[in-house]
Each structure stands twice: as C-alpha cells, then as structure tokens.
Amino acid sequence: MGFDLEALKTAVAEHGRVVRVVIAAIKGSSPREVGAAMLVWRDGQSGTIGGGTLEYRAAEAARRQTDPARLSHHALGPDLGQCCGGAITLVSEVYDAEAVAALDDMVVARPVAGAQMPLSIKRLLARSRGQGIAPEPQLIDGWMVEPVHKPARGLWIWGAGHVGRALADVLAPLPDLAITWIDTAPERFPDTVPAGVTVVPAAKPAELVRHAPRDAEHLVLTYSHSLDLELCNRLLLHDFRFAGLIGSATKWARFRSRLAALGHPPERIGRITCPIGDPALGKHPQMIAVGVAAQLLRPGLENELKKDLSA
C-alpha cells in the first residue's frame, strides 16, 4: 500500500480540486488498513477506505472541506453504528495541480497537525533514502508519511480482442500491476482504455518481446494462432516470470510439438501455462478474466491447474 501519485494526478487533471482521504491510524479492528485511501471530488470519487457509513460521511465531509488538511477521529461502533469495534484516524487533504506538482515521487511526508518537520520524520526519511527501503504508511508527531506506490509486477497482455479487453478491465484496478497492452494496430483497442494501462500498437508485436523485463508476466491471446506461436517462441528465448496462453488442450498439444521442433526442450516449454484461468468457469471473456486474475494473485496456482488438467 502506498500513495498512488499517478491516480491523484489523473483525478486532478480531470476534476480540478480533489480531496484525498487516507486512513492514518487504527486502534482495534478496522475495515481497511493504514494507508488505504480514496479520492473525492464534487460529483464523484474513486478508491475506498471501506466501512460503508464511515466512507459515506468522510466523502461528504471532504466535499465541504475548506482547510488544506484536516485530521479527524472516528469510533466505528459508538459514532457510526458499525460492527467493527475499533477507532480510525483519517487525514483529508485538498489537492490541485500546483499541490500535486510539489509532491516528492518517492516518499510523501507532510504536516497535518504541526508545522516544522520533527526529528522523528527527518530520521525516518534519511533512513529510507539511505537504505532505499520505503517506510510504512504512518502518522508520526503530526506528520503523515507514505511511500509513493510503485507497481511491483509488470504484466504484458498480447491481444486486444474480447478476452484481452475483459482482462484489461478486470486487472487494471489491481494495485500492484503495471499493464502493457499490445496489438497490431490502434483500431484494435477500445476507445476508452482503463487508467494505468499503457497501449502499444505494433505492426510486428513479436519484435517487442526483447524489450520486456525478464521478470515480466505475459498473457498471450491474439487473434492469430501463428502470432501466438511466435510470441511463445520469442518468450521462451527471452525468459519471463510467468507466461500464459489462451487455448484448448488441442491447441496446446500442437503448440508443444511446434515449439519442440523449434528447439525448445520439454521442461522449458512446460513453463508456459495453457489454458489460462480456470476452465471450470467457462469460456465467457469475463469468466476467463476472473480466472486469470485469481491465477495471477495466487502464487503457484498455475502449477495446481496443470496438475488438475493432467490428472
């Protein structure tokens, strides 16, 4: 969890004045963790701090807020009638283009109930910069400190057909994925692309494989079996953290044979997962996307699926 600077920049660019509400501290139980945040503007919002009534009241207060920053405390049970028995401290801050431009791109530390930077914050920032370790989101001595969120995983989606579009819609909101979406021409993509997704039209998509980080994850689902095969071939030559191919058992049997003929040994070919997702959910694009999301979020699930399919 961290300060989603890109989401804030996008919201400010689209809506002007935006209030960011973040959970700064917790005592007891809470519907969300410290660092969970939402963005609120005049007629909308994004993100969530959870809690139903808590979120509703916090959003309404944010729309009325006039102070640049505000600290508020909420007892979830007595004050809000929620089942959680804890208490939450919220920090609500108003941002415009000028305020966003002034933010650090590594760690955002700012006063919410004080002025001068205390020694505790100076030490925390020095330790973070010196050791390269991002601090946990926390409220210290009247200052809120949050690391700027950086997606930890790179995901490349090859193909912008029905399944590719469903995957982009389902996976884009996940906080730790940086998605690169590739197809053969601009018109292959929808008019509206989910926030945070980088669209790359390329007449020869397979030529882009060499530019992918070797720890990236890949989902291959183009309109062409020959292009799918070439992408699999290039990925096996390049390396990857995970590679999944859409298709039936028959398609995968043919691909294994052709990849072997191209010189790839069986154990390396076996690193590619086919089919992707959970076959039990069916072949509807959104069902495939839901299955793939679960597959990517659960380490080792692809191996479990392979065992199930071979049983």
Results as ranks from 00 to 15, higher is better:
Val209Gly: 01
Asp308Tyr: 07
Leu236Glu: 01
Ile246Arg: 02
Cys84Tyr: 15
Ser226Lys: 10
Gly77Val: 06
Gln65Ala: 10
His218Glu: 01
Ala11Val: 02
Arg271Glu: 12
Leu90Tyr: 12
Gly2Leu: 04
Lys204Ala: 07
Thr48Asp: 06
Gln286Asp: 12
Leu8Asp: 10
Pro118Gln: 03
Pro173His: 03
Val12Pro: 12
Leu296Gln: 11
Pro266Val: 13
Thr250Tyr: 02
Gly50Ala: 05
Ala289Phe: 09
Val19Ile: 11
Leu54Gly: 14
Ile288Arg: 05
Gly196Tyr: 00
Gly35Lys: 05
Ile23Ala: 14
Leu80Glu: 13
Ala13Trp: 13
Glu217Met: 15
Asp191Arg: 11
Arg20Ile: 01
Ile140Gln: 04
Ser257Phe: 00
Glu14Pro: 08
Val107Cys: 08
Leu103Gln: 09
Val94Asp: 07
Gln116Trp: 00
Val199Lys: 08
Lys122Asp: 08
Ala62Asp: 13
Asp79Met: 15
Ala160Ile: 06
Leu301Lys: 11
Phe189Met: 08
Leu259Arg: 05
Ile272Thr: 01
Thr273Lys: 04
Gly2Asp: 02
Glu14Tyr: 09
Ala13Pro: 07
Arg298Trp: 06
Pro111Gln: 05
Ile272Glu: 06
Asp4Gln: 00
Ser248Thr: 06
Pro213Arg: 14
Asp43Phe: 09
Arg17Leu: 13
Leu208Cys: 12
Ile23Gln: 09
Arg64Ala: 12
Gly132Ala: 00
Lys307Trp: 07
Arg214Leu: 14
Gly130Tyr: 06
Ala168Asn: 02
Pro111Asn: 08
Arg64Tyr: 06
Cys274Pro: 15
Asp215Ile: 01
Ser30Trp: 03
Ala261Thr: 12
Ala212Met: 11
Thr192Asp: 02
Gly16Val: 00
Leu71Thr: 09
Ala25Pro: 02
Leu174Met: 15
Thr222Gln: 04
Tyr223Ile: 05
Ser92Ile: 01
Ala185Cys: 02
